[in-house]
């Protein structure tokens, strides 16, 4: 068969071709490696060059959320040690709610009266439900020791922080395209369970209600509020975050010196060390693309 093919090819055509048909190519073994070998390979086509400043600015979102969680921890501790009584807790809830709505009102341009009314209605339903359920939470973990509860709560909070979606808001904003991912749902659930556990250690029902409301407000709506701020103005977002971080650090300092150092270390780690690290390991990036890759469809599949 080779000969029949060879006869058809003129001597000038004795160049190696990247084809599979026609049997073994004249004068070339099957393991012949041409100069054109791997010439279609593209390396690091999609790699983004990152710079330190942008990375640091982006990491502010993470530091900000870390300080929000630290704040929640502080409020929990103060309530459990009865530094914060029921009334001030409820006051805190209401002022947070007011602040949240104010921010949404000021930043969302498309917030109509109708939408606002719906928000208020939903929140009042939510609060009623919570108030009714408060007695159940109150006795939920009576038979379990405080140590276990604290251990589980801290574990859940770490899980929450680990899986939290820092890039966008956890709950679905009106008109948002993306549904929350599985990990962010797990993260949200972990935080809710943690707040139920902490609330169940409190001495009075009203306190349970107050604390639950506070925790849920933060875990559910803080990402939405901070996201709105960030979308409205990045500068404001940076200043707001820096203010929040300073405030948290100050509060934590009054609570315990070691915790302060720990939080400070964590914040420095996320906003300075991690960006630097990422830039360093960027050098090891080696992405290979070529004709062997599965083709990407240029349209969306609507199932």
């Amino acid at each position: 068969m080779d000969s029949s093919i060879g006869a058809g090819i003129s001597p000038t055509q004795l160049r190696w071709r990247k084809v599979a048909y026609g049997g073994m190519q004249n004068g070339f073994d099957d393991n012949y490696t041409d100069e054109s070998f791997l010439e279609d390979m593209v390396t690091n086509a999609n790699v983004v060059k990152r710079n330190m400043l942008n990375l640091m600015l982006d990491s502010v979102s993470i530091s900000q959320y870390l300080s929000i969680i630290a704040m929640v921890g502080l409020v929990w501790t103060y309530t459990l040690t009865s530094t914060l009584d029921e009334n001030s807790l409820l006051l805190l809830d209401i002022s947070l709610l007011g602040f949240g709505f104010l921010v949404l009102l000021l930043t969302e341009e498309m917030l109509s009266f109708n939408l606002l009314f719906r928000y208020v209605l939903n929140i009042s339903f939510f609060m009623t439900g919570l108030y009714v359920l408060a007695p159940i939470y109150y006795t939920l973990t009576r038979s379990i020791s405080s140590d276990s509860i604290w251990a589980v709560t801290i574990g859940l909070l770490l899980l929450h922080l680990f899986l939290h979606d820092y890039s966008r808001s956890t709950i679905k904003v009106a008109g948002a395209v993306h549904n929350p991912s599985l990990t962010s749902c797990i993260s949200l659930n972990a935080s809710v369970v943690a707040s139920v556990f902490v609330a169940s250690r409190l001495p009075s029902r009203l306190q349970v209600f107050g604390l639950m409301l506070f925790s849920l407000q933060v875990f559910l709506f803080a990402p939405l509020v901070t996201y709105s701020i960030k979308r409205y103005s990045f500068c404001l977002h940076i200043w707001f975050s820096l203010g929040l971080m300073t405030l948290t650090l100050a509060f934590v300092y009054t609570l315990h010196c070691l915790l302060f150092l720990l939080l400070l270390g964590l914040l420095v780690f996320t906003s300075l060390v991690c960006p630097y690290w990422l830039i360093r390991i960027q050098a090891y990036k080696f992405e290979i693309n070529g004709p062997w890759d599965e083709a990407k469809l240029c349209f969306d599949i609507t199932d």
Partner: peptide, 25 residues
């Protein structure tokens, strides 16, 4: 390998010297 593209792919994936890889469709 069954094609030249497949050979490129296999050489990259496995780190074999190209002269050890034959193309037989």
């Amino acid at each position: 390998c069954v094609s030249h593209t497949s050979k490129e792919n296999t050489v990259l994936r496995s780190g074999l010297p190209p002269e050890k890889v034959f193309v037989i469709p």
